[in-house]
């Protein structure tokens, strides 16, 4: 049976994208295989690992638990969209480097999206709130401590930068 194609228009990292997609293509497969935005990783493909986290209208969601057509008319931000406009690392990304918050890097895009989602709504999170925010993202390398350190450090750096402005 040939899949019927459906038209979608999605704003991805600030760029309007339109496409024809079969109904059963997940958002993450569309982002990676059609838009070649391979920063978002595919892990378990059934909503357990969090590697595929992206922002939908500014809030973290799992892109393996959405069909691409469900993003029609919405705004998606992937890890590629977190960097500064000039392409350099954001403060959060830089803090991940500083704190050694990654080893193999597989979970990192999802961790960054989850952490960024937290910092949008809660600029000065407690360690417990950081742990709650990344609780849906599995990391098998770091033991999480350095990731918590990185998010805490990013929050402090963001607050300082805001104070200077």
């Amino acid at each position: 049976m040939t899949d019927k194609l459906y038209p979608i228009e999605v704003e991805v990292n600030g760029v309007a994208r339109s496409a024809m997609v079969p109904a059963r293509v997940s958002l993450v497969d569309w982002l990676r295989e059609e838009l070649l935005l391979t920063g978002t990783h595919v892990g378990c493909e059934h909503g357990i690992c969090g590697a595929c986290s992206v922002m939908l209208d500014g809030e973290p969601v799992r892109s393996c638990l959405m069909f691409a057509w469900q993003a029609d008319g919405h705004r998606v931000t992937t890890v590629e969209g977190l960097a500064r406009p000039d392409g350099s690392l954001s403060i959060l990304q830089d803090s991940f480097c500083d704190s050694h918050a990654l080893q193999c890097g597989y979970c990192t895009p999802g961790m960054l999206i989850a952490a960024q989602g937290l910092l949008y709504t809660n600029p000065r999170p407690t360690d417990l709130q950081i742990r709650e925010a990344i609780a849906g993202n599995l990391c098998r390398c770091t033991g999480y401590q350095q990731i918590v350190d990185a998010v805490r450090s990013a929050a402090a750096r963001l607050a300082k930068e805001k104070g200077q402005r």
């Binding site: 969090g50 638990l65 937290l118």
Partner: peptide
Amino acid sequence: VGHVQTRNR
């Protein structure tokens, strides 16, 4: 219930 990402959806 689940996690931040699943509760958002």
